[in-house]
Computed example of a mutant assay.
Amino acid sequence: MLKTLTDCGDVVLNINTSAFEADAEVFQEQVLNQIDQVIGFDRAWWGIMSPTAAGFTLLSSYQANLPDSYVEKWQTCTGDDRLAMSVNDAPTRTVRFGTQELHSTEGLYEINADVGNKYALCTAYRLPGRDDDFLFLSLFRCGRSAAFDKSDVWAKQFLMPHVNLAWRHNLSRRQDHYAGAADASTVMSCVFVDLQFAVLDPPPRFRELVRSVWPHWCGPTLPEPLIQGLLNVPRGSAVRFARLGFTLKPAGGLSLLSISAVSALDSLTPRESQVAAAFACGQSYKEIARSLGLSPATVRHYLREIYAKLGLTDKVELANLVHHAPGRAEP
């Protein structure tokens, strides 16, 4: 329980410190640890939902002490989720459910009784620019714990505006961090993406880059060709469109999509890349042949193929391309 102004200030300070210091992958865990110290809960569900005619669509999900089966079962009965309906109807207001309310529909009973949830506190906030979608944080207590009381409702009501803003600041800061990381020479922009491939708070540079490939894109959902490309490669692998590479990686309950510059050199085979790099550095046919265990005639053949693929005509153009390729520092 928050007993004094000092308690309030300490918790808010710690939440905001996490916003500026924690990686997106651990931010939610750290914030929940802070909330647990003043409210106390057994399980938590933090994510993003969007209302539909039949119930709700889950756009992001982070579970604390909840199995994946909880979310899987929830997705089969979203129309029964009166807790989600309540916070959707009254955003920013903390809703308290006792056992009777939390088990009041067949769907709610099935997903909560199965894991022992008997009491809940939930608060939702609309997402900027996506007024139908909302960020939610549900805290649960099981049967061995006391029910949430009015002081718990007050504490969560007090903390949630800070949690909401800290979450948004963390995402924004992590976007800036990834763009300025060690591979900043190739990463041109980053953005966080939900489970339906919709972007959150895309920076202007991200919009500019996506529209350079798909001029009519307005968002928030990514262009369909890009979605299909990302689905067809392993997570963490780049999919290429024009001279841009798009890479999707897990980041907490969301994913981080980065856009990198792609060089024409990426069209070369590994052996062609070796020959191109050596020739661009001034090695002769014979020197390249000797270092790679090839004949001079084979090196000449590779160079002809390299020039054809890259649309080049001489060694100077090749050297300029190699030495100024994305990810390579200029000499």
Rank of each mutant, 00 (worst) to 15 (best):
M1L: 10
V12R: 03
L13R: 15
I15R: 02
S18T: 04
D23H: 11
E25C: 08
E25N: 13
E25T: 14
F27T: 12
E29R: 14
Q30I: 04
F41Y: 14
W46I: 04
S50G: 04
S50M: 09
T57N: 11
N65P: 01
V71K: 04
E72W: 00
K73Y: 04
Q75Y: 01
M85N: 05
N88K: 06
E101D: 15
S104W: 01
G107D: 05
G107K: 09
Y109Q: 12
A113N: 13
G116H: 02
G116E: 12
N117L: 06
K118Q: 14
L127F: 02
G129H: 06
R130T: 01
D133W: 02
F136E: 06
S138P: 00
F140Y: 15
R144E: 11
K150L: 14
D152Q: 07
K156Y: 09
V163F: 03
L165P: 01
S172A: 14
H177I: 08
A181T: 03
V187K: 07
V187G: 05
M188R: 14
C190N: 13
C190L: 09
C190A: 15
V199Q: 09
E208K: 14
V213C: 11
T221F: 00
E224M: 10
E224Y: 04
G229K: 10
G229F: 03
V233L: 08
P234D: 12
G245R: 12
K249Q: 12
A251R: 10
S260P: 05
P270M: 10
R271G: 01
R271F: 00
E272L: 02
S273L: 12
Q274C: 06
A280T: 06
G282I: 05
S284A: 08
I288H: 05
A289Y: 01
L292M: 13
L303W: 00
A308Y: 04
L312D: 10
H324G: 15
A329I: 10
